[in-house]
């Protein structure tokens, strides 16, 4: 397990934020970690909606149970997050 710092942009945010995650984290775990620095800080919550993670430029989000390592994300890779 290794720490992978990512550059995240949550839809509705005005700024990219640094988010350290673990290589074994699933996308759902990544999303929960992202929540703490975005939702209720600069973005209003949308209760009941899942947060999805997508590589910049991709149409489709990563599967929710895919890990950071399997997704091939490396340090300072940029990912987009959004409420489904």
């Amino acid at each position: 397990m290794a720490t992978v710092p990512l550059a995240i942009l949550f839809e509705g945010d005005f700024v990219l934020k640094l988010l350290p995650v673990e290589s074994e984290d699933t996308m759902d775990v990544l999303a929960e970690k992202a929540r703490t620095v975005t939702i209720g800080v600069h973005i209003a919550d949308q209760p009941g909606k899942a947060i999805r993670v997508r590589k910049e430029g991709n149409e489709e989000p990563y599967p929710r149970d895919m890990t950071v390592e399997t997704a091939g994300l490396t340090p300072m890779d940029g990912v987009n997050l959004y409420f489904e």
């Binding site: 942009l9 839809e11 700024v15 990219l16 934020k17 640094l18 703490t36 620095v37 940029g78 987009n80």
Partner: peptide, 26 residues
């Protein structure tokens, strides 16, 4: 509770208009 991502050239935080121009340039 974290740092903003910083542009390698300007050394300023990477910002844009929410929902519009905020974008990852990597």
């Amino acid at each position: 509770g974290t740092l903003p991502v910083i542009c390698k050239v300007s050394n300023l935080p990477v910002v844009g208009i929410p929902f519009k121009t905020a974008k990852i340039e990597q």
